[in-house]
C-alpha cells in the first residue's frame, strides 16, 4: 500500500461497473461504499464524509449532477468525479466550472482513475 487509504463513494446503476470499480479501488487499499442510484448516493453522502465520489452522470432517481450539487452543500471538501457513457456536453462543462474535479468518459482506463487519485492525495 503506497497511498493513504481514502474513503470513496462509487455511485453507478450499472452493477458491473459499480462492483468492479469498487473492487479495484479496494485492491488499492481504499475504503469504498457504493450506491445504485442518486437518492442512495445522497443518503450515503449525508452519513459519511468521503474524500472522493465517483458519480455516474445518468442514474435513476437523481442524476450525477444533482448528487454533485448535494455533495457541494453537505461536504464541500469531497472531490467529485463524474463518469459518463455519453459525450461531454455543455451541462458537464458548467459542472466542471462549478467544482466537479473531472469528468471521465466510459469506457475509461483504470490507470486514468488511479492517476487522478494519486494526484489528489
Amino acid at each position: 500500500m503506497q497511498n493513504k487509504p481514502l474513503k470513496i463513494l462509487v455511485a453507478d446503476d450499472e452493477d458491473g461497473i459499480r462492483v468492479s470499480l469498487a473492487c479495484i479501488l479496494e485492491m488499492e487499499g481504499h475504503e469504498v461504499l457504493t450506491s445504485t442510484d442518486g437518492h442512495e448516493a445522497i443518503e450515503q453522502v449525508k452519513q459519511h464524509i468521503f474524500d472522493i465520489a465517483f458519480l455516474d452522470l445518468r442514474m435513476p432517481g437523481k442524476d450525477g449532477l444533482e448528487v454533485f450539487a448535494e455533495i457541494k452543500k453537505v461536504s464541500p471538501r469531497t472531490i467529485v468525479i463524474l463518469t459518463t457513457a455519453f459525450a461531454i456536453n455543455d451541462l458537464i462543462r458548467d459542472a466542471l466550472k462549478n467544482g466537479v474535479y473531472a469528468c471521465i468518459e466510459k469506457p475509461y482506463e483504470i490507470d486514468e482513475i488511479l492517476d487522478i487519485i494519486k494526484k489528489i492525495t
Binding site: E14, G16, I17, I24, M27, A85, F86, E105, I110
Partner: peptide, 20 residues
C-alpha cells in the same frame, strides 16, 4: 453510447483479472 457501459464493465474486470 449505451454500449459503452457494458464495455466499461468488461475493461474493469479484465483489469482485476490481470492483477489478482
Amino acid at each position: 453510447h449505451t454500449l459503452r457501459n457494458p464495455l466499461t464493465t468488461v475493461k474493469n474486470v479484465a483489469y482485476i483479472f490481470n492483477r489478482m
